[in-house]
Amino acid sequence: MNGTIIETKNLTKVYNGKIKAVSDLNLEIKEGEIYGLAGPNGAGKTTTINMLITRIAPTGGTATVGGFDIAKNSLAVRKLIGVVPQDFTADEDLTGRENLMMVSQFYDVPRAKAQENIRTLLKLVDLEEAADRYVRTYSGGMRKRLELIIGLVHEPRILFLDEPTLGLDVQTRMQMWNYVKEIQKRLNVTIILTSHYLEEIDELAARVSIIDHGKVLITGSPAELKTSLKGDIITITLSDQQSAELIKTIPDAVEVTDAGQNTVKIKVVNADDSLPAIINFISQHKLSTIKLTVVKPTLDEVFLEYTGRSIREEEGGMDRMKVAMNMRRARR
C-alpha cells in the first residue's frame, strides 16, 4: 500500500528552447498520501502537473505515474488519473449531473456504475440538490465542488488538484478542505495538491515539496519543515534604547537581531519554554515593555527561508485577473 506511485527523474520542460519552466525535478510520491507542491507563480508547479497528467510533453528527464511512463504510455496514465485543474472545465449549458455523466463516458464507465458513482460523489460534496440545474446557475464554491468530483467519476487512483481553493472565500475554503480530507479517507486516492495558500498545504498534505525556479528546494512533512527553521520568534519593543540593548544579553536565545526602533527579535528553540524566562528577565531588570509578540513558524516562514521571499508578494497580477474572470463566469 505504501509503494511509490509517482516518480520523476530529472524532469525538465524548456519552452521555446530557452525558458526553463521545470529543471531537473525529482519527486517521489507514495501511494495514498496527500502530497503538496508549494511555490510562487512561475515556480513550475502547474507545468510539472501538466507534464504528469500528459497534457504537455517533457523536454528532458522521465517520469512514471502508476508505473506508466508519461511520454511513452500517456493513454494508460490518463486512464489512471483524475484531474481538477485551476480553471473551471464544466460545460455551463449542461447540468451538473450531465457533466459528470459525460466525463464518465470518456472513461467508458458502464452507465449503471456511473450513475451510482455520481450519486455517491454528489452526496459527498453536498451537491445533490443542485445536480439537475444548469452549471451556469452555480456559485463559485459550487462550481469548485463540482470540478472536484468531475475529477473523481471514474474512480482514479491518483487525483491532481491544482489550486483547489483559488478565489474562494475563507469559509468555502475550509469547507473544501473537509471535502478533500473526506475524499482521501473514503476513496483512498493519492492526491497531488498545489497551492499558493501554505496553510492549505499545512492543513492537508502529509508531505510537501517547495519548488522555485523549476527545482525542488526542500521536501518533508509540514511539521519537519517548520522544525527545520529551528525556532520561534519573539519580538519585543521596549521603552528606550538602553533597555533594548540590555535584553539582547538574555540567555538561551538562538539568535538576536535588531528589528526597528527599540525593538529586538529573539529566536528561541521553543517559545513556550523561553517566554517565562524572558518575562522574569524583564521584571528583574525593571524594563518597561511596550509590545511583545510571539510567532510560531508557519509554512510561510519556511517558504521565506528557502526561497528568500514571501509567497504573498507573488500573488496578484494575472492570477487575480483569472480569479475574477472565473468568478464572473460562475455568477453569470
Binding site: V83, P85, D87, T89, Y107, I150
Partner: peptide
C-alpha cells in the same frame, strides 16, 4: 476559452 477543452485534453479520449 471557457474551459471544457482542458477537461477533454486530460481525458483518455
Amino acid at each position: 476559452r471557457l474551459g471544457p477543452m482542458g477537461r477533454f485534453l486530460s481525458s483518455p479520449i
